[in-house]
Amino acid sequence: MKITVIGGTGLIGSQLVSKLREAGHTAVPASLSTGVDLLTGKGLDEALDGAETVVNVSNSPTFDAASPDFFRTTMGNLLTAGERAGVRHQVVLSIVGVDRIPQLDYYRAKTLQEELLRNGPAAYSIVRATQFFEFMDDVMSWTSDGDTVRLPDTRLQPIAAAEVVAALAEVATAAPLDDTVDVAGPDVFPLDEIGRVTLAAHRDRRSVVTDDTAGMFAAVRGDELIAGPGARIAPTSYKEWLGNGS
Rank of each mutant, 00 (worst) to 15 (best):
M140N: 02
M140L: 15
W142A: 03
S144I: 14
D145N: 08
D145E: 14
G146K: 09
D147T: 13
D147H: 15
D147S: 14
D147C: 10
D147M: 07
T148P: 01
T148N: 07
V149S: 04
R150E: 08
R150Q: 10
R150Y: 09
L151I: 02
L151P: 06
P152L: 15
P152W: 09
D153I: 15
T154C: 09
R155S: 03
R155E: 01
R155H: 08
L156R: 01
Q157C: 00
Q157A: 00
Q157G: 01
P158G: 07
I159S: 01
A160Q: 06
A160E: 06
A161E: 09
A161T: 13
A161I: 06
A161G: 10
A162G: 02
E163R: 00
V164I: 14
V164H: 08
V165L: 13
V165A: 08
A166R: 05
A167T: 03
A167P: 01
L168G: 00
L168M: 11
A169I: 04
E170L: 01
V171Y: 10
A172R: 09
T173Y: 11
T173K: 02
A174L: 14
A175I: 08
P176M: 14
L177M: 13
L177S: 06
L177Y: 09
D178C: 15
D179W: 05
D179R: 01
T180E: 14
V181N: 01
D182K: 01
V183G: 00
V183T: 04
A184Y: 04
A184K: 03
A184D: 04
G185D: 11
D187Y: 04
D187C: 07
V188W: 00
V188Y: 01
P190L: 12
L191I: 04
D192T: 14
I194Q: 09
I194E: 07
I194L: 13
L199G: 11
L199N: 10
L199R: 13
A200P: 09
A201N: 08
A201M: 05
A201D: 03
A201K: 08
H202C: 11
H202V: 10
